[in-house]
């Protein structure tokens, strides 16, 4: 049961991170699972960078797999990369696409803030809450 969402910036730096998995497993295993998610997301960046110039589409579908983990990507016009690391318990490409689109809108509202410095971490708690809500709405949060 994995679902991990991350926004990656221009210097391959995380702009926003959110673990959407249900956290019922015990501490140690949970910790290593989180690290694995980050690792898998980072490893897929090269493939995303390759795919994003091949088409002008924002939604790139599945770009990478690692064992049972699937990486689905979305690249914004400003070349921010949205990655979702998940397993087969997240249903349907369409719901993931809808999730990305909704997050994109929230993301724009966050960066339109004149005090936001481009390419830095989004610390807004309201943003985080909203992402959690849209993740639940589209069945991306487990």
């Amino acid at each position: 049961m994995t679902s991990y969402f991350v926004i990656v910036g221009h210097q391959d730096n995380p702009i926003f991170e959110l673990d959407l998995s249900r956290t019922q497993d015990s501490g140690g295993a949970n910790e290593s699972r989180r690290h694995l998610n980050q690792f898998v997301a980072h490893a897929s960046l090269d493939l995303v960078d390759e795919a994003k110039w091949q088409s002008g589409a924002l939604y790139l579908k599945t770009v990478d797999r690692f064992n049972e983990l699937i990486v689905t990507a979305f690249v914004t016009a400003s070349q921010m990369r949205f990655l979702l690391v998940h397993d087969s318990s997240v249903r349907g490409q369409e719901s993931i696409r809808a999730f990305f689109n909704d997050v994109y809108e929230l993301f724009i509202k966050a960066i339109l803030n004149p005090f936001y410095v481009p390419n830095t971490y989004i610390v807004s708690n309201n943003f985080k809450k909203k992402v959690q809500i849209v993740a639940k709405k589209h069945g991306v949060a487990l």
Binding site: W53, S55, A57, V75, T76, A77, P118
Partner: peptide, 22 residues
Amino acid sequence: RHVGFRMIDLLCVRDRAPKRET
């Protein structure tokens, strides 16, 4: 620069068929 950076995504989603220019 503050203006330019913020226009990118805004104009993209206002478009009827959002896409990235390559």
